[in-house]
Amino acid sequence: MQYLVSVIDDKSSPGSSDRRPAISEFNERLIADGYWVFAGGLADPDAATVIDNRGEQPMLSDGPFVESKEYLAGVWVWEAPDLDVALALAAEASKICDRKLEVRPFQ
């Protein structure tokens, strides 16, 4: 079972910015234990562009699809046997990256 783990940051009270080494170390462990599928940090939401080409021509707009105080700062994809395992890892990961996480299963 694969889970998307979204790292949620908050513009008004951002998580600490010195977590990179700890996260790398955690990723090494995820790989060693067979949970790691993918991980990536995201640039600021201001760097996003939304494109909609359902009409006659592509419409581009500057910025994220939804403006909010909380935003997606990065993602993990984990392979875990069940939600309890994913949640136990997420509890650890939340501490390590100093941010709130959303754990959501793939279909």
Binding site: M1, D82, L83, D84, V103, R104, P105
Partner: peptide
């Protein structure tokens, strides 16, 4: 079903 919440006793710690 979708999130695969397990059908078992929680661990002693939980």
């Amino acid at each position: 079903k979708a999130a695969r919440i397990p059908y078992r006793m929680p661990s002693a710690a939980d």
